[in-house]
Design a protein around this nucleic acid. Structure first.
Length: 433
RNA sequence: GGCAGGUUGCCCGAGUGGCCAAAGGGAGCUGACUGUAAAUCAGCCGCGCAAGCUACGGGAGUUCGAAUCUCUCACCUGCCA
C-alpha cells in the first residue's frame, strides 16, 4: 500500500506497475518472471473456489489484477473450482462443512458468470474459462496416487504453514483438506499441459498452494513456472477489509445492493482511499496522484472517495446502476430540498436504500423506525428519538408519537426515514390495495 | 476412568443470598464538531409507553427472596491414570 515497495533491478513495466500499486505480496524468481513476460504473451491463471453463491470485493483484488495482466498483453485462464470447491482448502477457523455437489455446481455457474465480467474474451489475448472438475472428476484414485501423489513429499506438505497450524490445533485436519494442495498443484500442471500456462496468480494466503503447482510442474515436466500473490487488503486501522456492519460486501447485487456497494466505497476513510484507488482503479498514475493530492489538500471534498466509489460501482454494476445510485445518494444526503427531487429518482433512491411498503392507519415515528429496520425494537426507536437521531424527510423529530401528516408525504405517498447521519430507508404509504 | 476448577449480556470480564437488568473494558448506537472520513468530548446501550416482564449453560429444588446455596444433565479447562 505504500510507495516503499522495493522494485528488483531486473523487472518489467507490468511488474513495476503492480509493485507501485502494492499488488505484489510474493513472487517466485522475479527477474525470471520478468524475462518470461518480456518474451511474449504468457498464459496465466487465477482460480476461484465456489464457497458461496457470489464473489466478494476481496476476490475483486485478484480479478482486477488478472485484468491488468491481460491488458498488458497476456492470456488469462479464469479457473472456477468445481472440484476444489467440493473439497475446501484448510482454514484456521477449522474444518469446513462440505457443501453438496448440487449446491457447488450451482455456485460454480454463478461464480463463472461473475469472473467472465472482468476479463476480455475477444482479441489476441482472449480469456478462457476452465473448471478443474473437468480433469479431476475422471481421474481414478490409482492414477491420482501414482501419477500425481508420487511427486509430493510428506515433509514438504506438512511444513505448509496452514497445514502445520491446523495439525497443532485442537481441531486437527482431515485428509480431505490436507489433500487440497495436491489438487491445486494438479490444476496448474494440467493448465500448463493444455494451454502452456506458466504463471499462477492468487491471494497471498494461497502461496503454499501456488508453489505446489510450480514444484509439480518442475518435477513432472522439468519446466519452470511462476507464482505471484496479491496481498491481503487491510484497512488503515488494521481491521478486516470488505466487511460492513451488515456483513460481507458481495459483488452480487442481490446480496449487496448497488446502493450499499457505492456507499461502502464512498465511506472509505481518508487514510485508506489512496491505497484502494491503486488497487481497484484503472485510472492513470497521474490521475491517481492528483486524487491523492486532492485528499491531502481538500479532504472535505472527498474527491478520491467519489472517484473510487463511482469507478468500482460502474465496474461491478454498470453505468446505469451507478448513475441511479449516485442520484440516490445525492437526493438522500444532498443539501437540496427533497421536494426538488423528481418522483422517479426519489423512488429509485429509496428502493436502493430500502423501501418498505406500509398500509393501515398512519404510523408514528416509532413505528416507522421499526418497520424500516432502522431501529431493532420500540425501545430502541424511542431511545433514538430521545437522542435526537430520528429524522423524517430530513427534519428532526423529537416526539415519539409524532405522525406524519398527509402533506408530509412526498408525491402523496413517500417518506424518507433516517436514523443518525447515514442510515436511511424509505416508506411507501400509498401501496395500492 | 479419578480429582479439581469453570460456563454471566454482542465479546472480554467483575459479582458467593436482598442495595443486581447485573461493576469495568471493548464493540455498537446517538448527539456535538466536521466532510456521509478520522480523532475527541458527552449521552445511550435486554423487552415494554408504562405497570411490569424475561434474563446470569439446561432442568429440578431450598428460601419471604437466588447470578449467588443444593441436586442433576450438558459442555469446557487443568492435574492424575
Amino acid at each position: 500500500m505504500s510507495d516503499e515497495n522495493p522494485v528488483p533491478p531486473t523487472t518489467h513495466p507490468l511488474l513495476e506497475d503492480l509493485h507501485w500499486r502494492g499488488l505484489i505480496a510474493q513472487s517466485t524468481d522475479e527477474p525470471e518472471l520478468a524475462a518470461a513476460l518480456s518474451a511474449g504473451p504468457v498464459s496465466f491463471y487465477g482460480g476461484f473456489d465456489p464457497t458461496a453463491r457470489s464473489l466478494h470485493i476481496g476476490n475483486l483484488v485478484l480479478l482486477l489484477t488478472m485484468r491488468r495482466i491481460q491488458e498488458a498483453g497476456h492470456r488469462p485462464l479464469g479457473l472456477v473450482g468445481g472440484a476444489t470447491g467440493l473439497i475446501g482448502d484448510p482454514r484456521m477457523s477449522g474444518e469446513r462443512v462440505l457443501n453438496g455437489p448440487e449446491v457447488v455446481a450451482q455456485w460454480v455457474a454463478q461464480i463463472q458468470s461473475q469472473v467472465e465480467k472482468y476479463l476480455d474474451f475477444t482479441g489476441p489475448f482472449a480469456a478462457r474459462i476452465v473448471n478443474n472438475l473437468d480433469w479431476t472428476a475422471p481421474m481414478s484414485a490409482i492414477d491420482f496416487l501414482r501419477d500425481v501423489g508420487k511427486h509430493f513429499r510428506m515433509g514438504r506438505m506438512l511444513s505448509k504453514e496452514i497445514v502445520s497450524a491446523r495439525l497443532h490445533s485442537d481441531e486437527g485436519l482431515s485428509f480431505t483438506e490436507f489433500s487440497y494442495q495436491i489438487l491445486q498443484g494438479m490444476d496448474f500442471l494440467e493448465l500448463h499441459r493444455r494451454y502452456g500456462c506458466v504463471l499462477q496468480v492468487g491471494g497471498n494466503d494461497q502461496w503454499g498452494n501456488l508453489t505446489s503447482g510450480t514444484e509439480l510442474i518442475r518435477k513432472a515436466e522439468g519446466k519452470v513456472a511462476h507464482a505471484l500473490t496479491t496481498p491481503l487488503i487491510t484497512k488503515a486501522d488494521g481491521t478486516k477489509f470488505g466487511k460492513t456492519e451488515s456483513g460481507t460486501v458481495w459483488l452480487d447485487g442481490e446480496l449487496t445492493s448497488p446502493y450499499a456497494f457505492y456507499q461502502f466505497w464512498f465511506n472509505v476513510e481518508d487514510a485508506s482511499v489512496d491505497g484502494y484507488l491503486k488497487v481497484f482503479s484503472f485510472r492513470t498514475r497521474a490521475e491517481l496522484e492528483a486524487l491523492a493530492e486532492a485528499t491531502a489538500v481538500r479532504p472535505h471534498a472527498r474527491e478520491a472517495q467519489r472517484a473510487l466509489a463511482a469507478e468500482v460501482t460502474t465496474l461491478v454494476h454498470g453505468e446505469a446502476a451507478t448513475a441511479s445510485v449516485m442520484a440516490a445518494s445525492g437526493a438522500l444526503f444532498g443539501r437540496g430540498d427533497l421536494g426538488d427531487v423528481d418522483e422517479a429518482t426519489l423512488e429509485a433512491a429509496l428502493s436502493e436504500a430500502g423501501l418498505h411498503e406500509m398500509t393501515g392507519p398512519p404510523p408514528t415515528v416509532v413505528e416507522l423506525l421499526r418497520a424500516t429496520g432502522l431501529a431493532s425494537s420500540s425501545s430502541d426507536a424511542r431511545r433514538t428519538i430521545a437522542e435526537g437521531g430520528a429524522n423524517i424527510n430530513n427534519r428532526r423529530i423529537n416526539d415519539p408519537e409524532h405522525m406524519p401528516s398527509p402533506e408530509d408525504l412526498l408525491f402523496g405517498r413517500l417518506l424518507v426515514v433516517r436514523r443518525g447521519k447515514r442510515a436511511v430507508a424509505g416508506v411507501n404509504l400509498g401501496a395500492r390495495p
